[in-house]
């Protein structure tokens, strides 16, 4: 049981960090960023290039991933989403644009980084073995702790900085925020860059554990959408809760249901359908949006 909980917490921490970026972008701009998974993959490949190819320290790779993805996110917001949102009132325009960016990034990743699975050496060796009740490699513990620290840092940024307050105001009411003097364009760009940066950071963190390949983008986006559906789209605390709930469900399902075949995600999807029938806005979302 202890092992199931430990696996669930570790998975939950990484999932929550993935979902945070997606929900931030949704809350600020009402955009479902289907390219979030591809941004995660791009971040992983940047860290791989810096650490495995250039031989620089892991922390440099992580910072490079954060910077590259932040710049990419800002450019995507300014040159792609902003004009589309300005010219089109239909939600599907941004959805199509996001899907197009996802396919584009897939092609770019294949061209730049190739088709192979990539990975970087373990950043910490050794395995914690607590009387065979919890077995957890130290690098996973470190990545889990770093993920939780990043979540805490993100919450602090949103709570206590001017940019965070402006973005929260934007998320609550775009027009009211504009009337109160919030520079909507500027904070939309910062928000998108921050969301993309979070995706890149998780990719960079997990390349040491899971490795990275170009096929990981789509499934990562699907999982991230599931998390924000559980927690409530556009709600920061909801994304965190959604991430930890999905991580825990996956860990329990894979252990308890393993004898019956690969039915964990079948059970999770079935539960999600029933849950959404009763609470379509998710755990912490508001029924009115």
């Amino acid at each position: 049981m202890e092992q199931i909980l430990a696996n669930g917490l570790y998975l939950g921490a990484q999932y929550a960090l993935i979902a945070l970026g997606l929900t931030l972008i949704f809350s600020l701009m009402n955009v479902l960023n289907f390219a979030h998974g591809q941004m995660y993959v791009f971040g992983g490949f940047v860290t791989y290039t810096v650490v495995a190819q250039l031989g620089l320290p892991f922390i440099v790779g992580l910072v490079a991933s954060a910077l590259v993805l932040a710049v990419m996110g800002a450019l995507i917001e300014v040159f792609l989403f902003r004009p589309v949102i300005r010219k089109s009132k239909r939600d599907e325009s941004t959805m199509l644009l996001a899907a197009g960016i996802a396919f584009f990034l897939d092609a770019v990743i294949l061209l730049l980084f190739g088709e192979k699975q990539r990975g970087v050496p373990k950043i910490v060796g050794g395995v914690l073995n607590w009387d065979m009740r919890i077995i957890m490699p130290y690098d996973r513990i470190l990545i889990g702790v770093l993920a939780i620290a990043l979540i805490a840092g993100f919450i602090a940024l949103m709570q206590y900085t001017k940019a965070g307050r402006a973005m929260r105001a934007l998320a609550q009411d775009r027009v009211a925020a504009q009337l109160m003097g919030v520079d909507v364009d500027r904070y939309s760009m910062i928000g998108f860059a921050l969301g993309a940066m979070l995706a890149g950071l998780v990719g960079g963190l997990l390349v040491t554990i899971t490795g990275i390949n170009l096929g990981m983008g789509g499934p990562t986006s699907v999982k991230a959408f599931m998390m924000i559906m559980i927690g409530g789209a556009g709600v920061i605390s909801g994304a965190i809760a959604g991430g930890f709930i999905l991580g825990m469900m996956e860990s329990i399902g894979l252990t308890v249901l393993s004898a019956y075949g690969d039915i964990t995600y079948l059970a999770i999807f079935a539960s999600l359908m029933v849950f959404l029938a009763f609470r379509p806005q998710g755990l912490m979302g508001k029924p009115w949006g």
Binding site: I4, Q14, R140, G215, S251
Partner: peptide, 16 residues
């Protein structure tokens, strides 16, 4: 009987 999704990123619970 144990199987996994092709997009699995953490195989620890699968293999346990």
């Amino acid at each position: 009987t144990v199987t996994y999704q092709v997009d699995t990123t953490d195989f620890t619970p699968v293999l346990l």
